[in-house]
Simulated scan of single mutants.
Amino acid sequence: MKTGRVDLVTVPFVLTCLAVVLAPGPSLAVILDQALRVGRSAGLATIAGNTTGLVFWAGASVLGLTALIRTSEVAFVVLKVVGAAYLCWLGIQSLRRSRRAPAAEPGTGAPARGLFSAYRAGFLANVSNPKAAALYLALLPQFIPASGDVLTGTAVLAGVQMLISASWYAVVVLAVAAVRRVLDQPRVRALLDQLSGLVLVAMGLRLVTLSRAAA
């Protein structure tokens, strides 16, 4: 069996990556929250943070850290509790915003501090998600031949997965930006904050009940 870089990226691998990224999860919820509340730039910054989180998990996979999370009950519980707490905190913040009078915000831009906050939100949502760890432990190794180089194989497959992930989320952010003027009305914004808050809290509660078998 050939182990070249091109041979690693098979149709089944691409389809699997698409299925994973299209499934709603914490990353999508946080990206949508930032794109709806702040704008396109913040949404794209959140995608960058999420992708950095994937880089972290790819490196952890090579070092064997994701295997520790997969096999250690303590590590898994700590990670999912931290992730759940962070999502619930974001959700509560969104719910609190929905009760306040909306302040004027720029249409599609955001100050540098706001972009960093969005980037950080995307990064933290990803690195505190045990499903992201399981993705790089359970998914990538299946597509690396036994005789292949693990480091090269992980780098190639992770790069493709990150490209698919970032591309899909960018489409979502651009779609939100296209209709944001309609969504920017005070009553609509308050409703969206409420909906976003409830979704984030629900995902946080769902994450804390996640079992290792489901990850």
Rank of each mutant, 00 (worst) to 15 (best):
G4T: 09
G4V: 06
L8D: 02
L8C: 06
L8S: 03
T10V: 11
V11E: 08
V11D: 03
V11P: 04
P12E: 09
F13Y: 13
L15D: 00
T16E: 10
V20R: 12
V20F: 12
L22Q: 05
P26T: 12
A29K: 08
V30Y: 08
D33A: 14
A35F: 03
L36S: 02
L36R: 05
R40K: 12
A45G: 01
A45Q: 00
T51H: 04
T52R: 12
V55T: 14
V55G: 08
V55N: 02
F56M: 09
A58Q: 06
G59A: 12
A60Y: 07
L65Q: 01
T66P: 00
T66E: 05
L68P: 00
R70A: 08
R70I: 07
S72I: 14
E73T: 15
E73P: 04
V74N: 08
V74F: 15
V74S: 10
A75I: 03
V77N: 11
V78P: 00
V78M: 04
V78W: 02
L79Q: 03
V81M: 11
V81K: 03
V82W: 07
A85M: 11
A85G: 08
A85L: 14
L87W: 05
L87P: 00
C88I: 14
G91H: 09
I92K: 07
I92H: 10
R96P: 00
R99F: 04
P102Y: 09
P102L: 10
P106I: 06
P106G: 08
P106M: 10
P111K: 14
A112D: 08
L115A: 03
L115W: 05
F116D: 01
S117T: 12
S117E: 15
A118F: 06
A121W: 01
G122F: 03
G122K: 09
F123I: 04
A125M: 06
N126Q: 15
V127N: 00
L135G: 00
Y136S: 02
L137H: 14
L137M: 13
A138N: 13
P145A: 09
A146I: 09
G148Q: 11
V150R: 14
V150W: 10
L151C: 11
L151P: 03
T154P: 01
V156F: 02
A158G: 05
G159R: 11
V160W: 05
L163M: 13
L163C: 11
S165R: 07
S165L: 05
S167A: 15
W168P: 01
W168Y: 14
V171Y: 05
V172Y: 05
V172K: 10
V173H: 00
V176K: 10
V176Y: 07
R180H: 07
D184S: 15
D184T: 14
Q185T: 13
Q185F: 09
R187D: 06
R189F: 03
A190I: 08
A190G: 07
L192C: 01
L195A: 15
L198M: 13
L200V: 06
V201E: 06
L207Q: 05
L207F: 00
V208S: 12
V208P: 01
L210R: 09
L210G: 02
S211M: 11
R212V: 04
R212T: 07
